[in-house]
Design a protein around this nucleic acid. Structure first.
Lengths: 147, 147
DNA sequence: GTATTTGCAAAATGTTTGCAGCTGC
DNA sequence: GCAGCTGCAAACATTTTGCAAATAC
């Protein structure tokens, strides 16, 4: 889990996906992927930048913003807005899933099944809406932050 | 529905709640409440300001931000961050509920039951998290925006 | 070699704060 | 009358854009 992006097979998958869309794997992108791979917590862009600069001090903030947007677009990263509206990022597995987030330490755990399809079907019938998706995040305190 | 805040009983409830917490009902607050009452769509602070200025041209943007924050704090309004991270506001009924949002016209319909408690209980047991809440919004196209 | 990417500076955007004057009650 | 509120200006935080130099492949 911790080495999601470090596992050679996953990194190759990222590189291949970039290639397929005309993008390139670069040193800054590798560094940012490594930062996300090493963290189990949601990170703000500034936090990603600070951590990435430990490995690569000349990295620019703009590159972090652009890279995070790209990784979201490609589906490798999720952008989450909690109540405060700040953008936070976490790595995302393939397929449909959501995050359970600790409001103490920002730890984020993925879970796949949300069981919302019955609700969505019912509301679609009742309202005539064509429901396309949903935003769902659970928030609470992880075992370490409950004391 | 359209006149949620205009109904005298509801307005009195807002006034009473403000009073109880040491706040006052003022002309700018009344105007902003009326704007939210008249709209069935999510509104950005700037949109609230523009609409409110039709009734009260001297209204300041800062007052809109402060009033929206206050109304969220008191539970009369919900602040929603969609994928783009922008803050949008909608009036909120009492009790637990969520919104079904049209990505075409920003129309927002409240619905009360989300059926997430089984999922939350299961994840709490599996992870040791003390789950305190959830962010849930359904997004799609309303009948008018599907054409 | 060439198209993509980077990093800087600057601009744009969105929101908050300090404060003097105004308003609700 | 006095506490709370407003509106302005300014500060602040965050994100985006234009562009020349660097880089991936």
């Amino acid at each position: 889990l911790k080495q999601y992006f470090n596992k050679s097979r996953n990194m190759k998958h990222v590189i291949q996906t970039l290639r397929d869309k005309g993008y390139r794997m670069t040193q800054p992108r590798r560094t940012i992927l490594a930062v996300l791979a090493e963290s189990d917590a949601l990170l703000r862009p500034g936090e990603v930048l600070a951590r990435a600069r430990r490995h690569n001090p000349s990295l620019g903030a703009v590159t972090v913003y652009r890279t995070l947007n790209l990784l979201v677009e490609l589906g490798f990263v999720r952008c989450i807005h909690l109540e405060d509206g700040c953008a936070r990022y976490a790595r995302k597995s393939r397929g449909h899933n959501h995050h359970l987030i600790c409001i103490g330490c920002q730890a984020a755990i993925e879970f796949p099944e949300c069981g919302l399809s019955a609700l969505m079907n019912r509301l679609a019938k009742e309202t005539g809406f064509q429901i396309q998706g949903h935003i769902l995040e659970l928030v609470g305190l992880c075992p370490n932050c409950q004391h």
